[in-house]
Design a protein around this nucleic acid. Structure first.
Lengths: 180, 180, 180, 180
DNA sequence: AATGAATGAGCCTTCATTCAT
DNA sequence: GATGAATGAAGGCTCATTCAT
């Protein structure tokens, strides 16, 4: 079961990923998606029920990829404190690679209302997953410390997007490490 | 030179404020704005050059109002530690009143690319203003403490929006107060 | 692969032809075009990139049709002098059929600035084609005569539009024939 | 009864003249007119009944100015043949000064339908005036020669606009002079 | 599975004009 | 006479989706 190089479904997802992430969901039209993906308009609807379902696919994929990246960074270290430091290094690396576009989930969250229950659920699940992931690294710490690190971690992402600068990552990293 | 009760410019700004904040900038059409404001389509352009300039007006107004609100809360306290606690109480209060829609500036930031220089500048100025405000309260503290409080403050806003829950505000408040 | 009776692209072109020619380009709105063509608004953009590209399509089609008509008239005669006379008869005929709306290309030229390079090029190409066509009929004449006939031919079109009268065609015809 | 330097009515007329002539009537919005004239929107309607009446004012003024210019050129010569040559030199001069925008009246004619009776009348009157003017210079010639020169004169204007080149003026001048 | 055509609704902006001051 | 505000209609174009092939 080989995948074609030019698998339309995959190309649509990749294009949507790039566009939704970099310019936002509502600012991205499906015209742009299908054009950059190089597929026919109707083909989008062969593979995805709607624009929103393409958004959901993007978020799911992003969750997997992002958590894998985080895992890869933290796996390099052994001690909890070092793992946490490595987690912040992952943010630093992402900022470089993705030009400070911040968190895909929080960005979409900003475009989401209470009516978009499916989208909201995926976003919250992602963050719960992250929180749990950091919590496991800090299994021996008290809940207060876990939360504290998590909140600093979140700030680091958002604030480096805001200022287009790494200082929040670096400062938050110091603070988090200092807590441990 | 009295102001009319139904000043259209003001109504447009109020309507835009509500819509941009609650459902996002790109998700809000000019049609909805003028309809809810009860003005003719072209009247919008008598007062605002473009949709983006209406957005900028909203952000400026929001900055003023929000900082005033924050000021009002912190003025109630005298000691720095209490002022910081009061600042978090302001967030708590906002969440109740605005149904966890989070930070207007960070939400718009998510819909903003590097090309939107004017918008980006207003957002960054707002956050610099907030950071400076908190920094003055903590004038006697080291820069590291100031930053730490600021990052927790930001987290509190974002995460309570994400979870539609006050716990991040309450936890971050405890942590911040604990630092002082 | 049969063509549908109500081919929308063709209907759009025909409608645009009639409207652009009879009331001008800028005076014709897209709304009027789609309404009279009986197609949905967006369908226009399925077939034509923009209003200007519809204009270009109109001019191209008009060039072909008009030159064919001219050809048909001049083919009836054998001697150059008679062919030229027949060319003026073609103008006479057009004026009757099209109610003295003059030259589609010169009319659009009036609405064209130096920035509209694509449109300007089509217009100039049309006139170069006409000039070459007349020049071939008068192959044995000197260049000065060729130009003279061409200029009278152009005057005949423009002035009969201006006065809503055939006299310029008839006078110019006499003059041109007299030159040969 | 002095005229103010910044007479609004005059400024409006001058601005409209420039814009209607250079970019066309329908392509010119009153916003652009009032902005470039530096007057308030409603002031336009203080002085002119409507956009069309501004157009008529432009055409009337243009007629006067243009005929004066033509007069000035032909006055330099004494013999009919030289006066006609001078008339063509006037066209040459205009083309240089006005960047080959052609005849203001014929351009507006292209944007005019049979319903625009007032506009059409002004245009026709202008051309009748020109034709009479040339006719008077050639008072001793037969009607056929008068018409011939007139038609070449008209061609010279239109075709130099079309090709953005002086050759039609120069060629038509030679032909006209050759007829006398 | 893939596609080009078609669509009603909506996008943001400007139109020419009128009104109250 | 001059003006800023206000307006309904229209400007050209794009939206997300569906349909017939």
């Amino acid at each position: 079961m080989k995948k074609k190089i030019s698998d339309p479904k995959q190309r649509l997802l990749e294009t949507a990923t790039s566009l939704f992430y970099n310019q936002g969901y509502h600012a991205t039209g499906i015209n742009q998606v299908i054009e950059e993906a190089g597929v026919a308009r109707a083909s989008l609807y062969t593979h995805y029920e709607s624009k929103e379902s393409l958004l959901l696919a993007f978020l799911h994929q992003r969750h997997t990829d992002w958590m894998e990246g985080l895992q890869r960074f933290t796996d390099k270290a052994t001690k909890p404190k070092e793992k946490i430091a490595a987690a912040f290094d992952f943010l630093f690396d992402n900022n470089e690679k993705e030009h400070f576009r911040g968190c895909a989930f929080l960005n979409i969250l900003s475009e989401t209302t209470d009516n978009d229950t499916a989208v909201l659920a995926v976003i919250q699940d992602h963050k719960k997953g992250l929180r749990a992931f950091l919590g496991e690294i800090l299994a021996k710490e008290k809940q207060g410390i876990k939360d504290h690190v998590y909140l600093l971690f979140e700030s680091a992402i958002v604030e480096s997007q805001l200022y287009r600068h790494q200082w929040p990552v670096q400062e938050a990293r110091k603070m988090a490490v200092g807590l441990l």
